[in-house]
Design a protein around this nucleic acid. Structure first.
Length: 471
RNA sequence: GUCCCCUUCGUCUAGUGGUUAGGACGCCAGAUUUUCAUUCUGGAAACAGGGGUUCGACUCCCCUAGGGGAUGCCA
């Protein structure tokens, strides 16, 4: 049977990191097995679902590079089908109308707690005579779940998990207003969509038992299940919207690459021996359910950043330049020209070696597109004293005499200057760097010299030396 | 309260009865170097506790502790 997985977020907020990992695992599993990966938007909570959230989820998925098969399924649009199944359950005697009020429910919960019993609805309308139905109360439809025995979840990650049926109360299938609840909708949709494997957070583990009972009552085969552990924040607490969980777009804005996110998230909870750097292609080849860990993991920015640095260093120069472009535009408040981008692309080898994020890549590119005279930071300014100015002036003279402008000859020339001045290369390189970049940190100085080009480079050196050509 | 799950360096993890308990991030030291990074070398750092089972337990069982999840007319 072809594998069919799905990612089923509810659009009540953005796509957070845990959801992104769940989506990734489902995607990898489907791709690994040559199956389908479906997307279903669980928007049955009309109060809290928003179009903005749907858009954020779609955008987040696209950014992560997780493409789904077919069109997204909007759960709310399938409500008639859900009601139909509820009616079938009713007709088969597997469901019933319940007229209990919210107050009664609250009482039941409190009482159960006091008596140390499993909490929940006590089933008072399970077998009640229709003549007792109160006036003017619209009932909910409840599932008549088994009271005896137990339900075993054969989970691909958690192993066999047994839950006593007495622990599970009669859940609501249809609300008083006639709309289906999540518990009903998921199983109907998973069944109708032909989902074979459900991979989701283990906060759904108890739900799984309830859903299994429903599958059983309906005479349907249940999909295979894999409940993956949740991701915690750096402090070990639950990573939730309330606790500083960020939407996936926040990571994009912080300058993380999607390939780094994929690698990091994959490794958070899944392993393949000692492998750390795992490309997406490799991940598709290797991914399985067996190697998913059972314990919750903490999110660690340091490791993400390290991976991000790796993928930036490995990244294609034109690709990186294109990512830098909007950041630069935002930082300078000006439009970035194609010429400037090609300049940055040319300098990319030196730039990307030093970057940990697209943001820092953009920041270190700034000097390339700066206008003369350069603004100097305080350290650069300190470096450019009178002595330095005099030396730079002579360096400018020497460079001006050059017939070409290739890195090798630039380096040879500067080294000669150092030798004739009786100075170590560093004594010239640092002032030169300050003059050319306005800072004390940059790619190799000869690369900078070459990329900047003759006129711009000499101009910047003269600016710093406050000198005119001597000839 | 009730039920379920988890527990190897600070963090992510490998390990499936016999290992000097391995790797990665981070940290520390050193090498390379025109700055910063990269790269390379080395170092400190862990089996939650207690009982069993066994010739032998990180690996199997039980208990305790700690952590997490569920307990909605949310998903």
């Amino acid at each position: 049977m072809t594998v069919v997985t799905r990612f089923a977020p509810s659009p009540t907020g953005f796509l957070h990191i845990g959801g992104a990992r769940t989506a990734l695992f489902n995607w990898l599993y489907a791709r690994h097995n040559g199956g389908k990966f479906l997307l279903r938007i669980e928007d049955t909570d009309r109060e809290r679902s928003t179009d903005e959230a749907i858009q954020a989820i779609l955008d987040g998925m696209k950014w992560m590079g997780l493409d789904w098969d077919g069109d997204p399924v909007y759960q709310f649009s399938r409500r008639d089908r859900h009601v139909e199944v509820a009616n079938q359950l009713l007709a088969d005697g597997n469901a019933y109308y319940c007229y209990a009020s919210k107050e009664e429910l609250a009482e039941m919960r409190e009482k159960a707690r006091e008596e140390g019993r499993p909490p929940g609805y006590d089933g008072r309308w399970r077998d009640r005579d229709p003549s007792e139905v109160p006036e003017g109360v619209s009932p909910v439809v409840r599932f008549k779940s088994p009271n005896e025995g137990s339900t075993v979840i054969q989970d691909a990650v958690q192993g066999n998990v047994t839950i006593a049926n007495a622990q599970l109360d009669d859940l609501i299938l249809l609300r008083a207003d006639g709309t289906p609840t999540y518990m009903l909708s998921v199983i109907v949709d998973d069944h109708d969509m032909g989902v074979t494997d459900i991979i989701r957070g283990d906060d759904h583990l108890t739900n799984a038992a309830r859903q299994l009972q429903l599958y059983h009552a309906l005479g349907w085969d249940a999909p295979r299940m894999a409940h993956i552990p949740l991701i915690h924040g750096p402090d070990g607490a639950k990573l939730s919207k309330r606790h500083g969980a960020l939407g996936i777009e926040a990571y994009r804005d912080m300058g993380y690459l999607p390939e780094a996110m994929r690698n990091y998230l994959l490794r958070l909870g899944w392993s393949h021996g000692n492998d750390e750097i795992i490309s997406t292609e490799q991940a598709i080849e290797w991914f399985n359910l067996e190697n998913i860990g059972k314990s919750a993991a903490r999110f660690d920015f340091d490791k993400l950043e390290n991976l991000n640095g790796h993928y930036i260093r490995e990244g294609d120069n034109a690709y990186l330049a294109s990512l830098v472009r909007p950041v630069l535009a935002q930082k300078t408040g000006e439009n970035v020209t194609d010429e400037q981008i090609s300049l940055i692309e040319k300098a990319m080898n030196g730039l990307k070696e030093r970057a940990k994020s697209v943001i820092s890549l953009a920041e270190s590119s700034l000097f390339l597109i700066a206008k003369r005279p350069l603004a100097l930071d305080s350290k650069a300014e300190k470096l450019l004293d009178a002595d330095a100015a005099a030396i730079l002036s002579r360096v400018a003279d020497a460079l001006e005499g050059l017939s070409g402008w290739e890195k090798e000859m630039l380096e040879a020339t500067v080294r000669e200057c150092a030798e004739s001045e009786g100075l170590k290369l560093g004594k010239i390189a640092q002032p030169l760097r300050a003059a050319l970049t306005g800072t004390t940190v940059s790619p190799g100085i000869f690369d900078v010299l070459e990329v900047l080009g003759r006129d711009e480079a000499i101009g910047r050196i003269r600016d710093a030396a406050k000198s005119e050509p001597t000839t």
